[in-house]
Design a binder for these strands. Sequence first.
DNA 1: TAAAGCAAGAATTTATAAATTTTGCGCATC
DNA 2: GATGCGCAAAATTTATAAATTCTTGCTTTA
Lengths: 240, 240
Amino acid sequence: MDTARDTETPATRATSIYERLKSDILDTRLEPGRKLQLRFLIEHYDAGQTPLREALNRLTTEDLVVGKEQRGFFVKPVSLEELRELTKTRRWVEGLALKESMANATTEWEEAILVAHHRLDRTPRSLDPERFESNPEWERLHKALHVLLISNCGSRHLVGFCQQLAERLQRYRALSSRKAFRVRDVAQEHSDIVKAVMQRDVDEAVRLLECHYDKTADVILEDLEVDPGIMPARADAVSA
Amino acid sequence: MDTARDTETPATRATSIYERLKSDILDTRLEPGRKLQLRFLIEHYDAGQTPLREALNRLTTEDLVVGKEQRGFFVKPVSLEELRELTKTRRWVEGLALKESMANATTEWEEAILVAHHRLDRTPRSLDPERFESNPEWERLHKALHVLLISNCGSRHLVGFCQQLAERLQRYRALSSRKAFRVRDVAQEHSDIVKAVMQRDVDEAVRLLECHYDKTADVILEDLEVDPGIMPARADAVSA
DNA sequence: TAAAGCAAGAATTTATAAATTTTGCGCATC
DNA sequence: GATGCGCAAAATTTATAAATTCTTGCTTTA
């Protein structure tokens, strides 16, 4: 049930619970739509009501938790509709951010990308070469590369928004069972994007990045069509 | 100290306090950088600690309040740097959203814009024709028109992000003293934008909208150069 | 059969206690 | 004589426990 990070500074109780809760929601250990009862949370997270309540309230603003007045908290439901909308939005906004990043390109930035890509490239996608088992280190480096690509755009707000979109999409990836393992050469896609960035070919880089996100969504959508019932077409009821 | 809305359903204490706090921060009745001591808040908002704390935690995620661990909450400071960055970002993102909205244009949408603009046009900008006094009704209709312009883009997430940017910019407008009154023909700018949208001239509409936001920022920046000391160039210290 | 009232469960709020940080004063040292 | 370190008191934030309020489902009665 834990999410790692025991050695770090606990900072404040509310913050550490917030992080654990967020992580559990994003990795769908807490299923979409599930009711978050205080009793249950107090039990499983070994915490008091106040820090729990504060964490829940923070997540409410991030739209990862939905708070119905006087009726408690629920994990935000998922829907195919939202998956499509998130992907579309991410394409637009990250495309924009990458374009601006490249317009402001500096040597340091390009070198940092090269390094980040290299690190990702030499890290195995899966802990088990036979069947897929998520490698936290790969996930971390993958995220780092994508953030770096857009981080030179000159707007922390825009970068923050992109990260929020990525977080929200994380649940859909976690829900997808085979996770594009072997089906897709993700490493090649990353190499191509980085190459275009190095060549300062803005249009090509943006095109490849958009394509990258499209493919991710497509694989998830296929997966969910094969195994429907996991996800409603549109968000509605709550499976308590 | 109140923010209107007494007749509505109070829903939950935490929510109503959240709204009042947010409104007070956005209108700078709670000055940027100010320390938000629980004692003071309990006194002035006539509330308990828990709902106050929950409201503060929600605002933390929205980056309107900064929470220093174990050391209390502060109103997020302002800076000229952030003003510039917010404006730049808003230009990019709302430009994008308007373009997409127009690509999906429907008769209903265009008619709704016409109506929204008409309502705004016949509402006085200032309650006092001599010197500026903010008219809440105008502000409401103004916001409604801008939201409507981008609301047809097909992404609630993108619209939400734009609204957040608008909210964050609201504080800077409130801080600017003369507020572009008489200096600028805002009504004409709105008319021109709406006209371009009706003619389905995407490039022109986007250009005018971006120009609209640029002018807003320019006037505020001028104001703050005339009367410096209100705002630091970069965010840093906190004036308790 | 439908409506109203009652009881049980859950969420929100108030109140209380514990822990942490800040502040001010005194003493020692340079 | 001034400066710096350290300890103790005060204030503030964080956490726990208790009480109130609201919702919901069931039972009883018309």
